[in-house]
Amino acid sequence: MFSTSSRFNSRLLPLLLVGVIAVVLRQETVSYRCILLCQKQQEHISDGVCHIHNDHFGFSYGTADIMCPVPSGCDKPSHVAVVSVNAKFEGTTPFLTMPNTVKHIQTAQLNSHDPPSKTQDNLHHSLPGLVEVIPRSMSRFLNVSRGWLPEHGSGDLHYFGQIPALNDCLYRSMYQSKYVALPDVDELILPQTVKR
Rank of each mutant, 00 (worst) to 15 (best):
P116K: 01
A108D: 09
T97W: 13
V102W: 09
T101A: 14
H113M: 10
K118P: 04
H125E: 09
F141W: 03
P94V: 11
N122L: 15
A87T: 01
T97P: 10
P128I: 10
P115G: 04
K118L: 15
V133D: 06
K103L: 14
S126C: 10
M98Y: 05
T97A: 14
N111T: 00
T93N: 08
S137K: 13
N100R: 03
T97G: 14
M98R: 01
K118T: 15
E132V: 09
Q106E: 15
P99M: 08
A87S: 15
L96C: 14
P116M: 04
H104F: 14
L142I: 08
G129M: 01
P128T: 02
Q106N: 14
V131Y: 04
S117Y: 02
V131I: 11
P115A: 11
V102F: 11
Q109D: 08
V133L: 03
E90R: 06
N111Q: 06
T97H: 08
H104N: 04
K118S: 15
R136K: 04
V131M: 08
T92F: 07
V133F: 08
D114R: 05
V133R: 01
V102Y: 11
D114L: 12
N143F: 04
P135G: 02
L142M: 02
L127A: 13
S112D: 14
T92A: 06
P99R: 02
V102P: 00
V133Q: 00
A87K: 00
I134F: 14
T101P: 02
K103I: 07
P135K: 04
T119K: 05
P94F: 10
V102R: 06
I134N: 09
S112G: 03
P94A: 03
R136I: 08
G91T: 08
F95T: 02
T119F: 09
N143D: 01
L142E: 00
N143Y: 06
H125P: 00
E132W: 05
Q120C: 12
A87H: 02
P99N: 08
P116V: 13
F95N: 08
I134M: 05
F89E: 12
E90A: 05
V102K: 13
F89T: 10
S117R: 06
E90F: 03
T119W: 08
S117I: 08
T92H: 10
N100L: 06
